[in-house]
Amino acid sequence: MNATVGDRLLVHGHTVGEGDRSGVIVEVQGRDGGPPYIVRFDDGHTGLVFPGPDAVVVHT
């Protein structure tokens, strides 16, 4: 998984009733665009994310 600042991260809900989360990648901390990422989610929360298999990078 590779990303650049400004790409969007979409994390699919993994339990029944849990919705998807998405946000903008504001910092890439891994080498060559790899994780972890600092993500500002659409709900205003910002956090360090190590994306799993339920996550997709949407390139802008």
Rank of each mutant, 00 (worst) to 15 (best):
D42F: 07
G30W: 14
P53R: 09
F41C: 03
H12S: 06
V28F: 10
V24P: 00
H59R: 14
D43E: 05
R21C: 03
L9I: 06
G52V: 04
H14L: 02
V28A: 11
V16E: 15
G30L: 05
G19W: 06
G44N: 01
V24R: 02
L48V: 06
N2C: 06
L48N: 07
D7S: 06
Y37I: 11
T15H: 12
A55D: 09
G6K: 01
D7I: 00
R31A: 13
D54E: 15
P36A: 10
P36T: 14
Y37N: 06
G44A: 01
G13Q: 04
I25W: 02
H59P: 08
V49S: 02
V24S: 04
L9T: 09
P35L: 03
F41R: 03
T4I: 13
P35S: 05
V11T: 12
G17L: 12
F41D: 01
A3C: 12
R8N: 02
V56L: 03
P53Q: 11
D20R: 05
D20M: 07
D43T: 03
P53H: 09
I38V: 15
G52P: 11
V24G: 00
Y37S: 09
G34F: 09
D32K: 08
V39W: 05
Y37K: 10
R21N: 03
G13N: 08
G52D: 12
H45E: 05
G47S: 15
H59A: 14
A3F: 06
A3E: 11
R31M: 06
H14G: 06
V58E: 01
T46E: 14
R21T: 05
E18V: 15
T15I: 14
H12E: 04
Q29A: 02
N2S: 15
S22R: 08
I25R: 00
F41T: 05
H12I: 08
Y37Q: 09
A3G: 14
G13M: 01
V11C: 07
G17F: 13
L10D: 00
P53I: 04
P36Q: 12
R31N: 10
V5P: 09
T4R: 14
T4W: 00
V56W: 01
A3Q: 05
G33S: 14
G47D: 08
R8M: 03
I38R: 10
V24K: 05
M1S: 07
H45V: 08
V57G: 09
G44T: 07
L9Q: 12
D42V: 10
L10A: 03
R21M: 12
F50G: 03
R31S: 13
A3V: 02
V16P: 07
E27W: 00
R21K: 12
G33Q: 11
D7H: 13
V5W: 08
F41P: 01
D20Y: 07
V26N: 02
H14Q: 12
D32Y: 09
R21Y: 09
R40L: 14
G30E: 13
P53E: 07
V58C: 00
V39G: 13
D54T: 14
D32Q: 11
D43V: 11
